[in-house]
């Protein structure tokens, strides 16, 4: 392929000799690139430059205020050999990813299925369930979460009815991460909407045919819904995992950017942010970012490789 494109740029005589090549390129490649054009302009003009710059910075000491100094792989060396906070934040993030992503997806899918039954008041429920996601990164969330999960918060008042005296969930290092996982699940609106859109694409006549054949609801779910929904499941799983790895805002607003108590909510990107803007080590922060990218990239590539065994496209 490379050989051919090199050839095509060679000389006018050659081009004239192979007129079909150009028309073939035009026929085969041009439409694709034309549709891709806005993205390509954005990628090459706005995105790739800053990305490469950050890669370069990861090999430097850069304090934001003066020029960066090249330090080779020092940042990466330090990370893996002499930085307990790196490992601590990695553990917190891994824990968060492992628990929040499956729970959130299962919850979103279950609600989407429930809402896809053509029940009365569907638009109202859909809107109600989406409401928490509207709040986004509002400062109000931090205050709300304290009202619920502090020692004298709502949860403990409910527990007290059953005679249980609960801890201050949000400020106890053993439980604080769970309050963030619950926050993430609470804002399950986006995957739910995407699941709903996916469910809407499944042709109803398939279910009708299956019903006539006497297939149970569960069988219909396993044989029709799940397989046809796999592209959407695949998408949600990949995106939610990437987002969970990059998760920043919940910990930032709830812990006031500290990652406390005792670093129990020190998410990877929160640590990265502290290093970059709190302690003026943008070089080190960039290295942290590229390690995260490598990690998430490997995960994603692996998912794509296995996807041909379980994701069904209509092709």
């Amino acid at each position: 392929m490379t050989a051919r494109s090199l050839q095509s740029g060679a000389s006018a005589r050659e081009r004239a000799a192979t007129p079909s090549l150009w028309s073939r390129i035009w026929q085969n490649d041009a439409p694709g690139y034309l549709f891709l054009l806005p993205w390509l302009i954005g990628f090459l003009g706005l995105t790739i430059g800053p990305m490469i710059t950050s890669l370069y910075l990861s090999f430097t000491d850069f304090d934001l205020l003066t020029s960066p100094d090249w330090v080779g792989a020092n940042n990466y060396m330090r990370m893996f050999t002499n930085d307990p906070k790196f490992w601590a934040s990695m553990r917190v993030t891994m824990f968060f990813v492992v628990f929040s992503v499956p729970l959130k997806l299962a919850f979103a899918l279950a609600v989407a299925m429930l809402l896809n039954r053509g029940i009365k008041g569907l638009p109202m429920y859909r809107a109600l369930f989406y409401l928490p996601s509207l709040l986004g990164a509002s400062v109000a969330i931090a205050i709300l979460w304290r009202q619920i999960f502090a020692g004298d918060g709502l949860v403990n008042k409910l527990l007290l009815v059953f005679g249980i005296e609960g801890p201050s969930w949000i400020s106890n290092p053993k439980t604080s991460l769970w309050t963030l996982i619950i926050l993430s699940i609470w804002q399950f609106g986006s995957p739910m909407i995407i699941f709903l859109a996916g469910l809407r694409q499944i042709p109803q006549d398939m279910y009708e045919a299956a019903s006539l054949d006497g297939a149970s609801k569960w069988r219909q779910f396993v044989k029709i819904t799940l397989p046809l929904l796999t592209p959407v499941v695949f998408f949600n799983a990949i995106i939610q995992t990437i987002e969970a790895f990059k998760s920043f805002t919940p910990a930032f607003i709830i812990s006031g950017g500290t990652g406390n108590p005792i670093n129990s909510t020190l998410f990877y990107t929160l640590y990265l942010y502290q290093e970059a803007f709190g302690f003026f080590r943008m070089g080190y922060a960039s290295a942290l970012a590229w390690v995260l990218l490598a990690l998430v990239g490997i995960f994603t590539a692996f998912s794509f490789l296995t996807s041909k065994y379980w994701v069904h496209y209509d092709e």
Partner: peptide, 29 residues
């Protein structure tokens, strides 16, 4: 829907942009 050269490469690039935390591209941008 379309086929063109280096499609998979560009697609991978597109996914990569999703993975880098924005905090480190903020200043160059």
């Amino acid at each position: 829907r379309l086929n063109f050269r280096f499609k998979n490469f560009w697609f991978a690039m597109m996914l990569m942009t999703l993975m880098l935390p924005y905090q480190v591209t903020l200043i160059p941008q």
